[in-house]
Simulated scan of single mutants.
Amino acid sequence: MAEVEREFAALGARVRLHARCVDCGHQTGTGADEPVVLASVVKVPLVLEFARQAAYGQLDPAERVVVRQTDRLGGTGTAGCLDDVEMSLRDLARFALSVSDNTAADLLFRRVGVDTVRLLVKELGLDSTRIAGSPRTLLEDVLRDVGATDPASFAAVYPALSPERIRALPTMDPRRTNSGTARDMTRLLALIWTDRAGPPAACALVRSLMAGQVSWHRLAAAFPGEVAVAAKSGTLPGVRNEIGVVRHPDGGRHAVAVFAEVRDLGERRPDLDAAIGAAGRTAVEELRGCCGQPPSPRRTA
């Protein structure tokens, strides 16, 4: 893993990485127990809690929800709609994982309860994971921090903020936002992929929705087409994350979590996106063979 650390350092970034075999638990990584900002990765335990409640009959996944203009938080998905949108709770979950829709995630948090997601991560033994709040709660924390009254006034103030001030925002501090560790996230994925995170139907739904993530340019891009990748990304200024499960045709399954903290606050860093995928592949290749599958051939380029 030392070479992975050097590669990220050369890109002006710090990496926390963990990978584990889903079936035997063999592990590798670097900085795996250091706290990291989850960003949109938090949508995985959120959707898992929704899926569990649906499986237990505590809510109807077809329940209709109207996404109104006042609900919109920016980003992708329903944020771009010009009119009110009506969809099911199940489709809110799909939007939250497939296109990382912040508004969908916020409405889902409102329905299933922030406290129940906190209880879930405790139940699953994710001892280093902290659920601070929903997307709207975190946005309100940022608005208060900079003295903005609403998202529009924050958008006007943001360009004038220094990089140091941006890094000091509550959403950038693991102690004040949704946070966890790379090791916790691969544990979460391994539990989902082995039906130990809840009823099998709930785990299957999360697996299916993660397999439908539209963004494939980080972890999935590093593997050939015959390797299945189900993943969830997370992005903030200076933060680039990806967690997922990689399944080879021979049945080998490995959970991977890569968290990159970047000095450059720019939105477009394809070099870092590629480095995240490469780091995940390096970790998986190190573990290949742990359950009897043939080791991956070493790449020469």
Rank of each mutant, 00 (worst) to 15 (best):
I166D: 14
L205Q: 09
A160S: 15
A221I: 09
A197M: 07
V227H: 05
T186M: 06
V227T: 07
P163L: 06
C203V: 07
P224H: 08
R207S: 13
D184T: 00
A190C: 07
P163F: 11
P159S: 07
D173L: 00
A160G: 13
A168M: 02
A155C: 07
A202I: 02
A230G: 13
T171W: 04
P170G: 01
A197T: 04
A231D: 15
D173K: 03
S215C: 13
V227D: 00
A222R: 06
S179P: 05
G234K: 10
A230Q: 08
T171R: 12
H217P: 08
Q213S: 13
A202W: 03
S179G: 02
T194Q: 05
Q213R: 04
R196F: 08
T186L: 03
V206G: 01
A182N: 00
A168E: 04
R175H: 10
A231C: 12
A156T: 11
G198K: 02
G198S: 03
P199V: 01
R218D: 02
L205N: 01
V157K: 15
M210T: 00
P224G: 10
A197F: 07
L205Y: 08
D173S: 04
R183V: 06
H217W: 14
C203I: 08
W193Y: 15
P163D: 08
M172R: 14
P224D: 07
G212I: 02
V206W: 00
Y158N: 11
Y158T: 04
A168V: 00
P199A: 06
S162T: 13
D195F: 08
P224L: 12
G225P: 12
